[in-house]
Nucleic acid binder design. Sequence first.
RNA 1: GGGCGAUUAGCUCAGCGGUAGAGCACUGCCUUCACACGGCAGGGGUGGAUGGUUCGACACCAUCAUCGCCCACCA
Length: 938
Amino acid sequence: MDKTYDPHAIEARWYHFWESRNDFAPKGVGAPYCIMIPPPNVTGSLHMGHAFQDTIMDALIRYHRMLGDNTLWQAGTDHAGIATQMVVERQLAQEGKTRHDLGREAFIERVWEWKAQSGGTITRQLRRMGASLDWSRERFTMDEGLSDGVKEVFVRLHEEGLIYRGKRLVNWDPVLHTAVSDLEVLPTEESGFLWHLRYPLADGNGFVVVATTRPETMLGDAAIAVHPGDERYAHLIGQLVDLPLTGRRIPIIADDYVDPAFGTGCVKITPAHDFNDYAVWQRHRDTTALQAVPYNGLINIFTVSASIISSDTPGAELIPNDFRGLDRVAARKLVVEEFGAAGLLEKTDDHKLMVPRGDRSGAVIEPFLTDQWYVKVAPLAGPAIKAVETGEIRFVPDNWKNTYFEWMRNIDDWCISRQIWWGHRIPAWYDEQGDVYVGRSEDEVRRKHKLGAHVVLRQDEDVLDTWFSSALWPFTTLGWPENTPELKTLYPTSVLVTGFDIIFFWVARMIMMGIKFTGQVPFREVYIHGLVRDSHGQKMSKSKGNVLDPIDIIDGIELEPLVKKRTAGMMQPQLAKKIEKATRAEFPNGIATHGTDALRFTFASLASNGRDINFDLGRVEGNRNFCNKIWNAARYVLMNTEGQDCGQNGGEVELSVADRWILSRLQTTVREANEAITSYRLDFMAQSIYEFTWNEYCDWYLELSKPSLLNPASTPAQVRGTRRTLVHVLETLLRVAHPIIPFITEEIWQRVAPLAGIQGPTLMLRAYPTVNDALVDPAAVKELEWVKQFVLGVRRIRSGMDISPGKPLPILLQNGSTQDAGFLASNRQFLQTLARLESIAWLTANDTAPESATALVGDMQLLIPLKGLIDKNAELARLAKEIDKLRANLERAMAKLATPSFVDRAPADVVAKEKERAEETRMALVRLEEQQVKIQAL
RNA sequence: GGGCGAUUAGCUCAGCGGUAGAGCACUGCCUUCACACGGCAGGGGUGGAUGGUUCGACACCAUCAUCGCCCACCA
């Protein structure tokens, strides 16, 4: 083995090995365990969030595979409608074209080409992460099978009246020219103005003043509303005002929606361009007052691009000439100007408001009147709420269910149609009269509705919201609507692993659709992890220039390419300089190679319950060092076992205290690891493995194995015992750690397993370790603890007195018990080697100890004669420090024991423990104080 | 306006009703035959504030402060 761990050399090889053997596929026997990957955007690339999430899922999957479960991690990608279409449209724009220049078919062809070209990136990167997805079952949301599932669901919901088409206000993206759902709108606080506009009363008796943040919409005003109880305006209700600029007259109506305390207490009502106003309109639409307004009050003033409509559009006759065709910004300016010029602008106040922006385009979203398809959600939400209430689905951590409930109990109908081309086209056809027919295909529609060939049918132009197909992912990937064997055995799936940001987008909708179409929940548990942020808690984003690419952490990257990567293709190029500077400051030498295992171990360590994680490269570095530590421990083990008798072929074996101790500690680690991963605490699992490996196996056991192996007096049975323990513990440890760090463990395991008498092609398919109670050995643990205290005592003296670590020391013992004598007898060899002792000798109680430095192991005193070794002051200082510490402890304990309420009311065992502790401290203190006096006297 | 989470060492974070932990960073010593991506020994925290429950609170409860997130129709 190489002296230094080199992740590159091992990672590619093993992934290919596993995949080519089809080791990721479910075995078909055992308890079912299944995770659906949240399908990444097919043309996207891996970011830190994926890497984190995939590490968690892969650890769970590998763990269950090792448990012998029938394990499937379903692979696949998402077509990501709007996102993908935007990318291709941007490419076209560079050629000076729009999608309309190509036409629908050619454009879609172009997107498929783009998918073919870039679609392999993310799956390649997932492989780099070691993700053991079953690629043989890979699915894409626009596959034939999944598309059939989408149509099936659409048709069935439509038949039940749970999908309907309707004209109503939607969130309209005027840049993308499509409707979007409520969830795709991000309200953002921005600075604006509150304009106070005067609307003259028709009877000539002055004005009403309305406050608005969107003056341009006044062109579509249908009414003025006041609160019915507002005495200031009671006399105006039913009157008309002259709507400036338009020559129209509109009524003053009363509605509870108005808050008399805000603004002037008068609100302009623009039903076609505001959700609240639309609701007011619905309550008043049948009143004569509104019926007198053109279009019954529902006056649209915008085109799909949010410009004012022009003369060839119905409604344009209501718009003054100089406004027609203006975009909304210009129209706003002109409205304000003209109000000002007419003396109708009362005042303009600065105002903070929430501006709705599209999550993809960033454009200001317009409430806009269009025909769209909707899912009636309430009937689906009921059972979905119940499933979580009854615990059929469990959220981890539990508190996320509150978020879920809150949304589900207030859910609105879901707008599922999108005016884009890339996606599942809506399975609905129109005849020339505009009648709509829904079916799985045009043929089916014709048959079902007896439409002859002479009837011209035109399919709906729109496609479905991407999340519609995602909602079906857990069952369509398993073959639904066919009742496949996979669906029968692996559904409901075991756990869904995801971020809280898509509980609404995805989790809730999967639960609704899953229950509706399979009669069962889609998953038993939902594990919600936090978001990956940068080391200071900032969200990673291109514009902040703080994005880390997981692949760069794995492979390393030079400074110049890193700078280039971070500053290329900026939406705001002016930020590039700052980002470059910050990047050069943070990574003066670029990013070093860390390897996949180190990155995965880091994610696991950070995966504590549910909170966001601040990603610190320092931790990856520490974990890379940890991998190196394992690597070198393995080298040591192999150097001492390969080609040697490790007892794998029988032969007498004798275990030392150290052997028994490490085997016992191993059981604890195995137990902790199992408990941790079962409760989704990969951080505990990682910590447990780290501490055992470094602080016990390496720091102590490997050192303890040296005297045993090197001592010529060791018997063959003893040497065999040590070798076997070295190998056995390492082999077990590799299995324990494999779900988190698959590559390095497999690489080492291949060489270690035969020495442990294990034959098998791959660690990945070996059994996950379970606790062997026969190896739990408290006596060995106690005895070795004594050895450690002994060694540590000597080392502290060395360090405190500045004695060279290599210098063998003579040591005298005094005041030992029978147990101490026994321990010494069986561990003399260990002590001499680890503490570098020249000799160990007992003093009787009557012997006068020479001037010495002292340490305590329980009641026993270790004495290292000072003669020629040190200066008195150093030892005095060391003693003084120890004594201070002990005194403080003793005082605290004594104070506690002197409190009657404590002694009376605390549990007896706590009091006893406190007494014992006080007594031990007191004894130790006495010893050290005697010693202090002695040294002082020199 | 509601709801949730966070506040522990210089930094990033665990934990726990019974004497505060890890990684990184820091100090001293050590090129010891697995590992300098290392070894040994150290330094460093009045646990955001206030009050309460308790024999005992960093932990449980209440209030407050600060930060972050989610939801919400105030024009």
